[in-house]
């Protein structure tokens, strides 16, 4: 199972091992099919490299099962508080736009990770 640096990752590669941040929180489980979104999350949390399933290697059923377990285990309360603060700087009606919702999501993650380091 090759270990690749974050810069070498491409969408649709499959994780051969779970990825955790420095404090041990799960960022993505084994068997996760990667997308651009994950690369950003890994960079945000300072992950340097990850283990990838070689292309000719079969993805086991066990791996697939793990992906269904949610990848976010970070303290929900911290997230909620940060989210509340960030949402406050938006006009309420703006929060209905899907792009703004995504932006808030990203800003929350960023802020929580800043606090962690």
């Amino acid at each position: 199972m090759p270990t690749l640096s974050i810069d070498q990752l491409k969408p649709f590669m499959v994780l051969a091992a779970e990825v955790r941040n420095r404090s041990g929180r799960l960022l993505a489980p084994r068997g996760m099919v990667l997308s651009e979104k994950h690369f950003v999350v890994f960079k945000t949390w300072g992950i340097k490299d990850v283990e990838i399933v070689a292309q000719d290697e079969p993805v086991t059923a066990e791996m697939h099962q793990e992906t269904s377990a949610i990848s976010e285990t970070t303290d929900q309360e911290t997230f909620n508080k940060t989210r509340e603060k960030i949402e406050m700087i938006f006009l309420p009606e703006e929060l209905e736009h899907p792009f703004i919702q995504r932006l808030v999501e990203l800003a929350v993650r960023k802020q929580v990770s800043r606090h962690e380091h």
Binding site: I86, I89, F90, L91, L103, A107
Partner: peptide, 16 residues
């Protein structure tokens, strides 16, 4: 503005 680089005169994020 959303990522914490806000100006101090404008407290809210502009309308999209």
């Amino acid at each position: 503005q959303a990522f914490g680089y806000g100006s101090n005169a404008e407290k809210r994020v502009a309308r999209l």
